[in-house]
Design a protein around this nucleic acid. Structure first.
Ligand SMILES: [Zn+2]
Ligand SMILES: [Zn+2]
Ligand SMILES: [Zn+2]
Ligand SMILES: [Zn+2]
Lengths: 135, 135
DNA sequence: TTATAAATGTTATAATATTACATTTAGACT
DNA sequence: AGTCTAAATGTAATATTATAACATTTATAA
């Protein structure tokens, strides 16, 4: 779907690196304030510093925002090889969040947007339910 | 997809009717606080009254929450005849929000969840971009 | 009637996000 | 190196969205 990714990633700035570092070390989404807490005394003091870094990281495709959780997660799909549309599978029981991509989802959304004469810029696909081990 | 809808809608309570009344009269999503403002002096005084009504209306399938806007919109698809999965098309330019449904989207999501062994309970599909008249 | 669940009213507070403004840093270009 | 400019940063204040806690009232049904 011709994604956001620049050909080459620019070097990250200090704050962007701090935030990316935190998100990379965990496998679940974190709220901006949780990120901030984990960086207090480590350079960051105010929410805005986190929100600004997140905004940039999201633009670069390194971080995704999970709308239904008001939280942010490091990108886990290989965006350099696979730029297809992405969905999140969110377990309501154990809280596990997985990033997945599937061509048939893309086809479906393409149908819907085409029918509406709509130019898709930013799809949000968040699937809440029960994961394999919780169901 | 075997939806949320009860066979018969229960009679709405006073607050639920007030909130539903506001959302029905407009064709765009409103924040909980915007709803509250429009009902001040009309019975409602506090945010919680609105949030509680919205929670119930959402369960009944009469209202949808738009996650990427933190806002709520009256359901516009005929839920009595069509209980297929729903997506929202959101124009970044004019702010127009349309509720649409398309079987191929449902097929796509079914593929993805099946592959993951996931039981889907609540899909969120929000497509931001440019509508026909804004593109 | 009486028990029960649902809905309501109210206050306070938590959690998430942005505005405004001053300052510093990093690159690009003489 | 010196100068210019855009980007990033620092900080405080504030706006927006959402929930916790608790008392009371209303609807429903045994
Ligand atoms: Zn990704
Ligand atoms: Zn699970
Ligand atoms: Zn609907
Ligand atoms: Zn438009």
């Amino acid at each position: 779907m011709m994604e956001h990714l620049p050909d080459k990633l620019p070097k990250l700035t200090k704050n962007q690196n701090l935030v990316m570092g935190v998100l990379s070390k965990v496998d679940h989404p974190m709220s901006a304030y949780a990120i901030l807490d984990s960086l207090k005394g480590n350079g960051l003091r105010a929410p805005l510093q986190v929100y600004r870094a997140l905004e940039r990281l999201e633009m670069l495709g390194l971080v995704h925002r999970i709308e239904c959780m008001n939280a942010f997660v490091a990108c886990r799909h290989d965006a350099t090889k696979d730029d297809s549309m992405v969905a999140f599978i969110i377990c309501n029981s154990c809280g596990d969040v997985k990033e997945v991509s599937d061509n048939s989802v893309e086809v479906g959304l393409h149908n819907v947007t085409k029918k509406a004469g709509f130019i898709l810029q930013k799809p949000t696909i968040e699937l809440q339910g029960l994961c394999r081990s919780c169901r």
